[in-house]
């Protein structure tokens, strides 16, 4: 489980970093999205991987890390997903505006 997921994180990171260095704005956006998957999974993994652990308490009950999933990484990732979306949207629009102004989709605004 851990090995597979960490390999997945590694490949996502590598693809993301590769795309970050590319000259086209669209490549950079895709790269950032891949990178944010990797980072989200990484943070999520900090709470350790649990299969079939209840994420929700019994009404009136008290939870513990032995019986339940770790809520903190999940809460962190939940906000990260939404912020990641906002970031993608902003970059996309900046990309479009830059393309409109400069006539090219190169990251520096010129070929």
């Amino acid at each position: 489980m851990e090995l597979v997921l960490s390999a997945g994180i590694g490949v996502l990171t590598a693809s993301g970093v590769w795309l970050l260095f590319r000259p086209r704005t669209y490549q950079v956006i895709i790269g950032l999205s891949l990178l944010s998957y990797a980072v989200n999974l990484f943070i999520f993994g900090m709470g350790r991987l649990r299969v079939d652990a209840p994420p929700v308490l019994e009404p009136g009950g008290v939870g513990g890390l032995l019986t339940h999933t770790d809520p903190i990484p999940q809460a962190l990732v939940l906000t990260a997903i939404v912020i990641g979306f906002a970031m993608t949207a902003l970059f996309l629009v900046v990309l479009l505006a830059s393309r409109g102004f400069t006539g090219t989709d190169h990251v520096d605004g010129r070929e």
């Binding site: 851990e2 997921l5 994180i9 590694g10 970093v17 999974l41 990484f42």
Partner: peptide
Amino acid sequence: DLGFAVFAGLGMMLISYTIM
């Protein structure tokens, strides 16, 4: 660039595997 990417990927994999 490929070197950078592979290095970053391997690093992330190692760290996350070790912690997890």
